[in-house]
């Protein structure tokens, strides 16, 4: 239980850092760290397949997308960023306080929920569920990936046309 708590706290801290830091690149690293911690949580709860996907796709692929967008759009000099930092601090300093307060307040509340009893022995293997019960979702995944491909084609071709 204690290791789990440490990982969860680290996850929240990484997310907090991602939203507080001034440099966008650092925020991306914070996001990747959050993903990595989430993957550890998933792994220790027994969701191995989802953990692997989270680690490779969210911590990996999405960070790559972020970094490339940041490098394509970087215009600020370091001086601008320092100037910008003051304004950001004014908007962001209450966040850790609020989060700490919410965390403490919630930990004193007694859980009011009722939960369905767990299935004895679980509900089988994820691969069976995914391929035999959730085929419709897989079909949806294919569709949304196709939509994404068309989006990339639209945006990317536009970029290269502009360079000429």
């Amino acid at each position: 239980m204690t290791i789990m708590t440490i990982v969860l706290v680290l996850m929240v801290l990484a997310a907090l850092w991602a939203s507080m830091t001034t440099l966008l690149l650092r925020a991306t690293i914070g996001l990747a760290l959050t993903s990595a911690m989430l993957a550890v949580v998933m792994f220790s709860l027994g969701a191995t397949l989802a953990a692997i996907l989270e680690l490779s796709v969210c911590a990996g692929l999405i960070s790559v997308v972020f970094v490339s967008v940041i490098s394509l759009t970087q215009t600020k000099t370091f001086k601008d960023i320092l100037q910008h930092r003051k304004g950001r601090l004014a908007r962001f300093w209450p966040l850790p306080v609020v989060m700490l307060g919410a965390g403490i307040a919630l930990s004193f509340v007694h859980s009011p929920v009722q939960i369905a009893l767990p299935l004895p022995g679980g509900d089988g293997d994820v691969r069976t569920v995914l391929w035999n019960l959730r085929q419709l979702d897989l079909f949806g995944q294919i569709l949304i990936l196709l939509a994404g491909v068309f989006g990339v084609m639209v945006f990317f071709k536009r970029e290269s046309k502009d360079d000429n």
């Binding site: 959730r134 419709l136 979702d137 949806g140 995944q141 569709l143 949304i144 939509a147 994404g148 068309f150 989006g151 639209v154 945006f155």
Partner: peptide, 21 residues
């Protein structure tokens, strides 16, 4: 409910890309 979410997302994402066309 989850498949409903998936198909809503399929429609929304293609609509977003359509707007940005």
């Amino acid at each position: 409910l989850f498949s409903l979410y998936v198909f809503i997302e399929v429609t929304s994402v293609s609509a977003v890309i359509l707007v940005a066309l």
